[in-house]
Write a protein that binds this DNA or RNA. Structure first.
Lengths: 204, 204
DNA sequence: GTCTATATCATGATAGAC
DNA sequence: GTCTATCATGATATAGAC
């Protein structure tokens, strides 16, 4: 709870985060984490009893970023269009700060999704509330009628996928020009908002 | 080249595909592949010298599905809107038949993307041609003006991401109701086409 | 708390009989 | 081609000195 900057535990967590994100649970090596932290393997097991436990510590830390309190926006009384814009802004702002998260989650999902689901339950995140709100707005004629699940999946896809597929974008579209790619990411919020609005507002 | 059904090599390739897709290169075990194929480890090394080579055989086999000949559609003379619809149909049709591909590619991308990029070059796939076609259609006033790269990324995201994130959709949105999820996937083509059209056609 | 040294075990790979 | 038995390596984990 209190400040423990530069403590050994902190150094281990930082190092483990770096290595686990880069290599995943299976690919990561305790030796590499120890080197990254500037200590030896024995100390890793002194602080965290096993690789499994160390990974769980990092995984939960990362999932806390991935499922933030967008709840506030969802619970607000704004009209649905404005609410969607705010969610896109919040979500892409988060991904810009932590661009490695989607790739990491994707990588570990098929290995063992149970940890992720426990977290989601713990944070009280309930997709049904979002779906109901969208359905209501459609019934009121605020936006075009469509299956709310498809709309939600469309929005999340356009936000998350470009980060998860970063190596492909970087190489195939941006010819390894990292600056151009970063610039592309910073434009996403504006583009995605406009794209969604154009797709869901009712044409006169 | 010739028919080699039920041959040992075929059995190994099938088993390896199953295990590599489920566990990835790092997570897969030669013993598990041998068990799945109904043989022993020694035979794996007799047919494929190492785990590395066996993985490469499977990986290239899978990438061949992932980058199919959508080239024909792209090279055609259809108007851009119709061309986009055909590409979405073709791409989602492919993913419905091989729903495991996106997850597998994502998982191996950060580990070592070089194999993927070699394949892409080998298939002569060139994204610039697509971007140029879209830009031209925008200049002609066929569709709304926007950065073609964002449009392409939007479309691919909405097609691929729902398959890559299958465990999340399955659990969080569909409460493990697999039939509902499959039905959702089969609706994607119609939904995505409509969504994109609504977003890019010029409103009167 | 931190280190060196070591135990224990799993895995990829090979040798050699049939 | 296929098997059993084994090797060599490297990984997690622990023991014990300081």
């Amino acid at each position: 709870m209190e400040a423990k900057k530069d403590s050994t535990e902190e150094k281990i967590l930082d190092a483990a985060k770096t290595v686990f994100i880069a290599k995943g649970m299976d690919g990561a090596r305790m030796q590499e984490i120890a080197d990254e932290a500037g200590i030896n393997k024995a100390l890793l097991h002194y602080y965290f009893r096993s690789k499994e436990r160390l990974f769980e510590a990092i995984f939960s830390q990362i999932v806390k970023y991935a499922f933030p309190e967008i709840s506030r926006i969802i619970a607000s009384d704004e009209p649905i269009v404005s609410k969607i814009e705010q969610v896109i802004d919040a979500y892409l702002g988060l991904l810009l700060k932590h661009p490695f998260i989607p790739g990491f989650i994707m990588k570990e999902l098929s290995r063992d999704p149970s940890g992720l689901f426990k977290m989601v339950v713990k944070f009280g995140f309930n997709p049904q509330i979002v779906l109901d709100q969208i359905q209501k707005a459609m019934d009121n004629g605020e936006i075009k009628k469509m299956d709310p699940r498809h709309l939600v999946v469309n929005i999340i896809s356009m936000c998350v996928f470009p980060f998860a597929a970063r190596p492909i974008l970087n190489h195939l579209i941006f010819k390894d020009d990292t600056n151009a790619l970063e610039n592309f990411y910073s434009e996403r919020a504006t583009i995605v908002k406009q794209f969604v609005i154009d797709a869901i507002v009712i044409k006169k």
